[in-house]
């Protein structure tokens, strides 16, 4: 059962889009969690990683999510995002 979940997770991530977003305004490690939490509330975002040192968020999402939703989620958390790339 565990392996099935793992395979499904890898499968879904391999077909996900990946956005790299530059985030302004983070001042402490907890800021990364506020942004991650906000991004993960979007239906269709499967994974989000936010790093304080690079000021970047890496977001894995599916076709029903558009980039505006990602930037709005970052804004709701109190920060400003700028899309660097989407693949």
């Amino acid at each position: 059962m565990r392996y099935i979940f793992l395979i499904l997770a890898v499968f879904s991530l391999s077909f996900a889009k990946v956005a790299i977003i530059h985030v302004e305004g983070m001042t402490c490690p907890l800021c990364t969690m506020a942004i991650k939490k906000s991004l993960k509330q979007i239906d269709g975002v499967s994974k989000a990683k936010v790093r304080l040192n690079t000021k970047k968020a890496t977001v894995y999402f599916d076709d029903k999510v558009d980039k505006k939703q990602l930037l709005n989620a970052i804004k709701r958390a109190g920060y400003k995002g700028k899309i660097e790339s989407i693949k």
Partner: peptide
């Protein structure tokens, strides 16, 4: 070295799980 850095200050315990910061407040 933690996954999140630099740390703003260390007055509280600081913890991480796979790069996720535990809420020290």
């Amino acid at each position: 070295k933690p996954e999140q850095f630099p740390i703003n200050m260390l007055g509280y315990p600081y913890g991480e799980v796979d790069g996720d910061v535990l809420n020290y407040y």
